[in-house]
């Protein structure tokens, strides 16, 4: 979505026991992706969540002078896992630049695309990238010879 509320107002008045959890940098992801979350474990809810990517990738340089309609093609090629997020952001930027107000159904289509890519991301990251790290510990315990 284009905007996210800072906090969830539903149970804001209740006494919360927020626990801050940070993951920075997440392993096996280029760009030093970091996730900063405040989690309400009792109510099983993530109250606040922010992400950052602190490595310089140079979007503002390599997009200079390009046709703005090409933005989502180019920016999404930066990552083999999360191309969709870059494409979606580029599409939102294009919409803002061209003054396009897409109907609600268009937002559904974007979200469906994001959801499909989410499954794809999950397989690639979980099974092929970070899965190796989890296996290392398991193999070390069961087969120390390997």
């Amino acid at each position: 979505m284009a905007t996210t509320p800072e906090t969830v107002p539903a149970i804001a008045q209740k006494k919360r026991n927020l626990i801050e959890m940070n993951w920075d940098a997440i392993t096996r992801i280029v760009g030093s992706l970091g996730i900063f979350a405040k989690i309400d474990f009792e109510n099983r809810e993530v109250a606040e969540c922010h992400s950052t990517s602190s490595i310089f990738r140079g979007y503002s340089i390599f997009m200079k002078g390009k046709d703005p309609r090409d933005a989502h093609f180019i920016t999404s090629r930066i990552c083999g896992i999360c191309g969709d997020n870059h494409a979606t952001c580029a599409v939102y930027a294009q919409n803002m630049a061209f003054g396009v107000k897409p109907p609600a159904l268009a937002e559904w289509i974007i979200n469906l695309g994001e959801a499909a890519e989410y499954m794809f991301d999950h397989n690639i990251f979980q099974d092929n990238l970070v899965g190796v790290d989890f296996c290392e510990q398991m193999v070390k315990e069961t087969n120390p010879g390997v």
């Binding site: 390009k66 046709d67 309609r69 090409d70 093609f73 180019i74 090629r77």
Partner: peptide, 9 residues
Amino acid sequence: FPDKFMPFM
């Protein structure tokens, strides 16, 4: 690619 084929659309 990509310069040779831009603008893509």
